[in-house]
Design a protein around this nucleic acid. Structure first.
Lengths: 156, 156
DNA sequence: TGTGAAAAATGGGGCGC
DNA sequence: GCGCCCCATTTTTCACA
């Protein structure tokens, strides 16, 4: 009836934990008092549950989200890269030092990796792309983001 | 010498604010006491600065980050979409209700939008893609993520 | 696990400089 | 804009059920 991996747990436990995670994903500074009211448990019960979620690695951390545009990083792009030097295929580690790269995924398809990058200007993008190609021995295909409707919506 | 937009500010102010933002981007629950020690100011000075960063919209919020895999969402993909019905071009709002879509960007290039989606399985991806195509009247091109080297690195 | 209460730390606001 | 004091709130831990 349920897809829980812990059949011994009380019926609503999973739902309570999901509610806590969803609430914290939207407001990482919600107080235990608020969370307790939300789920109808005592403050210490909520505290225990959240600590357990952190220890089990379901909650991996807490982040302040910053406005990239106001930080002067108004240009976002996706860069797909393909190795040109067939010897080396460790682009992620070669590129890790570039702060402009926010994400790096290995992907299936004609290209090997997709990067999400954030820079100040087209000029800065050009410099970054040259740096990427030279550092990782890759060819690049870049898709510039014009506007973002939503970003970083919580998975639950 | 500096690219600050507030020429009247003391020399190091921008750097202090950047340090605070960087610290909070990495640990959104860092206490003002910790932050104060880090930047060498008093707790209340730090408190003022962080409040101002929030009010100015440089810090847009705080989020708990969740382990999508442990939540059963182990398949990530990028979906590029192209309108097939040339009348309607409001895919973002038509698709906003789909929780599996984590990001939605309008992009330059042969396609119109790029979505980042997160689902439980290939089956779920197939269902989602059919839903996207039917809802937004678009064609889709999907790139499946095999592994993620890094994700959500702070911009500073 | 959950509850309740008590101790420790932090948050939030005002005042002088 | 910074530093310090005060008090409400929150976090954290404990014994008990």
């Amino acid at each position: 009836m349920s897809s829980s991996n812990s059949p011994a747990e009380p019926a609503g436990a999973v739902d309570v934990d999901r509610a806590l995670m969803a609430a914290l994903a939207r407001d990482g500074r919600a107080s235990y008092t608020e969370l307790a009211e939300m789920v109808g448990l005592s403050v210490s019960a909520v505290h225990q549950r959240v600590r357990r979620l952190e220890q089990r690695g379901l909650i991996t951390g807490y982040r302040a989200t910053l406005d990239a545009r106001q930080l002067g990083l108004s240009l976002t792009a996706f860069v797909s890269i393909t190795p040109s030097d067939t010897q080396t295929d460790d682009a992620p580690s070669l590129l890790a030092h570039l702060d402009a790269i926010e994400e790096c995924h290995a992907v299936a398809g004609v290209e090997s990796y997709i990067l999400k990058v954030r820079v100040a200007s087209p000029d800065a993008l050009e410099v970054l792309l040259k740096d990427i190609r030279a550092t990782a021995k890759v060819t690049t295909r870049t898709t510039v983001v014009l506007s973002t409707s939503y970003e970083a919506r919580p998975p639950i």
